[in-house]
């Protein structure tokens, strides 16, 4: 029996959700063919975060999301959504969760508005008296109001994606699970979605965002987890993840040969020279950068620029997996 109506008491708007909004313990899915899609996943998504869920295609992201949404049963392990076990309490908790899973799916013979009316009426907790108004608001929010009366089969991929997002926004949600939400959108559309995600998060909604686009995650997410081959490689605040990978020392100079020699003598490793640009692994924390630049100048190396470039999430990912982020196919 589900525990409807006893979910939470009132809480202030901006206060983050207490504890983890999504929490899995040893979550594992082995498909009938024997393929291990997700292997012992311990995921923890803090309340109020914009959580980026990263990984190449086939790394188990979508299987994980499907388990979280109660669409497939885990082979072993447990998952909790907003404090409730899924799939056992899925019907209690899912009205508070909006989802876009593996792209939008629509009834082509229905208009955009009628598609949303149908999805809304599938939710037994959705008030039919406010249905039309809520559908109208959701259409407005994703910029589809003008095309609401058009048959969905005439929609472009980007419009379908927006309609899928609108379906996730039919009700006020505490958690949004968005699987590749910017797929098929042009750069302008991507920016709009990013803005929308930030707005929703500012309202206190936790957003769980899966993507294979690293810069997208880096631009909007506060936290991230990286999956590869069905396993969770790392998770944490984006700033910490990127900090985990050391940055690069970058020197621009008309004398690259001398610069490389001097840096090598100073014990800097991983030096590569390309034209007038010399880069190297950032030195350990106890080395004062100013001493390096002084040494270079003292040796007669003329400097145009000198500094450490912050590591990107991509650097972190490569450092963690020892491989590139191959998203082909």
């Amino acid at each position: 029996m589900t525990e409807s109506g006893t979910v939470t008491g009132p809480r202030a708007v901006t206060e983050p959700e207490p504890g983890a909004v999504i929490e899995t313990r040893g979550l594992t899915k082995r498909y009938r063919g024997g393929q291990l899609a997700v292997d012992g996943l311990d995921l923890s998504v803090p309340g109020g975060s914009i959580f980026g869920f990263l990984g190449p295609n086939g790394s188990g992201k979508t299987t994980t999301i499907r388990m979280l949404m109660g669409l497939i049963d885990p082979t072993s392990g447990t998952a909790r959504l907003l404090g409730h076990p899924v799939p056992a309490a899925a019907r209690t908790v899912l009205p508070q969760v909006g989802a876009l899973i593996e792209g939008p799916a629509l009834y082509g013979f229905l208009s955009g508005r009628d598609n949303l009316l149908r999805y809304d009426s599938a939710d037994p907790t959705a008030d039919p008296r406010t249905r039309r108004a809520r559908v109208g608001q959701a259409l407005d929010r994703v910029g589809l109001a003008a095309a609401a009366g058009k048959k969905a089969r005439a929609y472009s991929l980007g419009m379908k994606q927006r309609l899928g997002l609108a379906a996730a926004l039919l009700q006020p949600r505490r958690l949004l699970v968005l699987d590749e939400p910017t797929n098929g959108l042009d750069p302008q559309g991507m920016r709009e979605i990013r803005t929308l995600v930030r707005e929703l998060a500012a309202d206190g909604t936790t957003v769980f965002l899966s993507s294979h686009l690293l810069d997208e995650i880096e631009q909007v997410c506060t936290h991230a987890a990286v999956m590869a081959g069905g396993r969770l490689i790392v998770q944490g605040p984006v700033a910490e993840l990127a900090a985990g990978a050391r940055g690069r020392l970058a020197v621009t100079t008309p004398d690259p040969g001398d610069a490389a020699r001097v840096l090598k003598e100073l014990g800097v490793t991983g030096i590569t020279a390309d034209g007038d640009r010399v880069s190297a692994e950032a030195p350990p924390g106890d080395v004062e950068l100013a001493d390096l630049s002084a040494a270079l100048v003292h040796a007669g190396v003329r400097l145009r620029s000198f500094g450490v470039e912050r590591a990107s999430l991509e650097d972190a990912f490569v450092a963690l997996t020892g491989e590139g982020f191959d998203v082909a196919g």
């Binding site: 939470t8 037994p124 907790t125 009700q171 006020p172 505490r174 309202d203 206190g204 909604t205």
Partner: peptide, 18 residues
């Protein structure tokens, strides 16, 4: 806001007829 409404919604009365 979304979250405020969601919290209110968590305990909202729903009709069995819905």
């Amino acid at each position: 806001s979304q979250a405020e409404a969601a919290v209110a919604g968590a305990g909202r009365a729903t009709s069995p007829l819905w």
